[in-house]
Simulated scan of single mutants.
Amino acid sequence: MGESVKLGQGTCPVCRSPKARYTLSGKGLCVITCNGCNFQGFARSERSDELLRDLIPKSAAPAADPAPGADPVPAPEPAPAAATPAAQPYPQPQPRKSFLSW
C-alpha cells in the first residue's frame, strides 16, 4: 500500500473530537479517520469531497515550505480567548413507535 497524503487535522463530525485526520484516498478523494471514536468517512464523489474538505480548518491545512534563505516571519501574538458558552448536550432520540400500534 502507498503512503497516505495528509490534508490536515480537524474536528470529527461524529464525536466532535479534535483527533480527526483528513487524508487522500488512492483515487484522490478525502478520507476522515477519527482516533477518538474510530469513525472512518469516505468521499465517493467530487461534491462529497468538497464538503469533507470544507470541514478541515484553514489553519490546520499544511503550510507551504518557505523559500530557501527567506527570513522567517514572527508569529503574531494570539488574541485573548473569548468566553465560550457551555456545551449543550445532544438531544435524546425519541423512542420509535411501532407501525403496528394504532
Rank of each mutant, 00 (worst) to 15 (best):
I32G: 02
R21V: 11
A60G: 03
L29I: 04
A63M: 13
V31M: 12
G69Q: 05
L51V: 11
A20Q: 09
D71P: 00
I56K: 03
R21H: 10
N38T: 10
Q40W: 13
R53W: 02
L51A: 10
P62E: 01
A67I: 01
P66G: 01
S48P: 01
E46S: 15
C30A: 15
F42Y: 12
L29Q: 13
C37E: 02
K27G: 12
S25R: 07
A60L: 01
K58R: 08
A20S: 06
F42L: 09
D65G: 02
A70Q: 12
K27F: 03
L55Y: 09
A20F: 07
G36N: 12
Y22S: 01
S59G: 02
R21I: 06
A60Y: 01
F42W: 11
P66N: 00
P62F: 04
C37Q: 03
V31N: 09
G41P: 01
V31S: 06
G26P: 02
Q40S: 07
E46W: 06
A70F: 02
P57T: 14
C30V: 14
R44L: 10
K27P: 07
A43I: 05
A63V: 15
V31C: 07
R44A: 08
R53T: 06
S59A: 14
V31E: 09
F39G: 03
T23E: 15
S45L: 06
F39Y: 15
R21L: 07
G41N: 10
Q40D: 06
D49W: 04
P72R: 03
R53K: 13
R47N: 09
V31Q: 10
A64N: 14
V31G: 06
S45M: 06
A60K: 06
L52E: 05
S25Q: 13
F42H: 09
A67D: 12
A63Y: 00
A60N: 05
P66F: 03
D54E: 13
G26Q: 05
L24N: 01
S48E: 09
D54K: 13
L55F: 04
P68W: 05
Q40I: 15
V31T: 04
P57F: 12
I32K: 06
A60S: 15
P68Q: 07
N35F: 08
E50H: 13
A61K: 15
L52C: 05
L52D: 03
Q40A: 12
Q40H: 07
I56A: 03
P68S: 08
R44E: 14
Q40R: 11
S48Q: 08
A60R: 07
A20G: 06
G28E: 06
L24I: 08
L24V: 14
A20K: 08
L51K: 11
F42A: 05
L51C: 03
V31L: 15
G28N: 06
A20D: 07
N38G: 13
P68F: 07
G26Y: 01
I56N: 02
N35A: 14
C37V: 08
G28T: 02
L51P: 00
F39Q: 08
S45T: 15
P72W: 03
G69R: 05
P68N: 09
G41S: 10
Q40M: 12
A61Y: 13
L52S: 02
D49R: 08
C30G: 09
P66K: 01
T23I: 11
C34Q: 11
R47M: 11
A64D: 11
N38C: 12
L24A: 03
A60M: 05
C37A: 02
